[in-house]
């Protein structure tokens, strides 16, 4: 079984986000960038399937700037076998390459690479859309197992446990399929130095979006990006009695 794992270069989750003063977007200059955390979980899951003898090859793909090679190398340090970079200078967070365009490019890559499974993050922590996996599944006519917290592969079919609003749901999917990961699917390993060194020598192919033959023009125009309304901090109370008094008589919520 061959697995394709898309990974996205995004702002590191620990970095404080700054909105640009001209309202055009978020300032990403000289900011630490990382693999989108949900995608890292996807890479880990694919690598575990390979280590467990269920998968034969793990291919990682990123659509982004030349520097997204760093994220592909990180994924290869975790254990992916090779990388494909679809190089574009268009923004990948806002006002550039949108989820539908990404799904179309991934579809073209799936048709070329012919994986049996695509595992990807449920959303990226920059534009927070939570769309690409579902869209890719739709375009391919494949089933989808979104927000996965458990994955079992049996002969020819998958059992996916999904995190839903009411609890957990398990679906059986035919392969090939698209899986999107939730937080509790696994805990990604820290890559060890020898693996990081080894990852530098793994094969890496760079292609242009035009080679995939899809229209990636944005459909959404970013009118403005602004900071959210700030919530003012309140007061500290000293006792439980004071708290109850405030909630009853000042806030009137009890």
């Amino acid at each position: 079984m061959k697995i394709l794992v898309p990974v996205k270069r995004v702002i590191d989750f620990n970095v404080k986000v700054r909105v640009k003063s001209d309202g055009t977007g978020v300032d990403l200059a000289n900011v630490k960038m990382s693999v989108n955390p949900f995608d890292e979980i996807a890479v880990e899951e694919a690598v575990r399937l390979k280590e467990g003898g269920k998968a034969t090859e793990v291919v990682v793909v990123s659509i982004g700037p030349a520097k997204a090679e760093e994220q592909l190398r990180t994924a290869m340090a975790i254990g992916a076998d090779r990388g494909i970079l679809v190089k574009t200078d268009a923004p990948t967070d806002l006002g550039g390459v949108e989820p539908l365009a990404v799904a179309k490019m991934l579809k073209a890559l799936v048709e070329k690479e012919k994986p049996d499974l695509v595992i990807m993050g449920k959303q990226s922590i920059d534009d927070d859309s939570n769309q690409t996996g579902q869209m890719l599944a739709a375009l391919l006519g494949w089933p989808q197992g979104t927000f996965a917290s458990k994955l079992n592969i049996e002969s020819g079919s998958l059992k996916v446990t999904r995190e839903i609003d009411g609890g957990l749901e398990t679906l059986s999917l035919k392969t090939p399929a698209v899986i999107t990961t939730d937080l509790r699917l696994n805990e990604p390993r820290y890559a060890k130095l020898p693996d990081i060194m080894k990852a530098k020598k793994k094969p890496m192919e760079t292609i242009e979006p035009s080679a995939l033959g899809v229209d990636i023009a944005p459909r959404l125009k970013i009118v403005k990006v602004a900071e959210p309304a700030k919530r003012k901090g309140g007061i500290k109370v000293k006792t439980v009695d004071e708290l109850i008094d405030k909630l009853k008589n000042e806030a009137k919520v009890l």
Binding site: I11, D93, L94, D127, I222, V225, A226, P228
Partner: peptide, 11 residues
């Protein structure tokens, strides 16, 4: 977007 640290107006 960005975990609610920015609000995008889109058309």
């Amino acid at each position: 977007v960005y975990a609610g640290n920015a609000i995008a107006t889109v058309k």
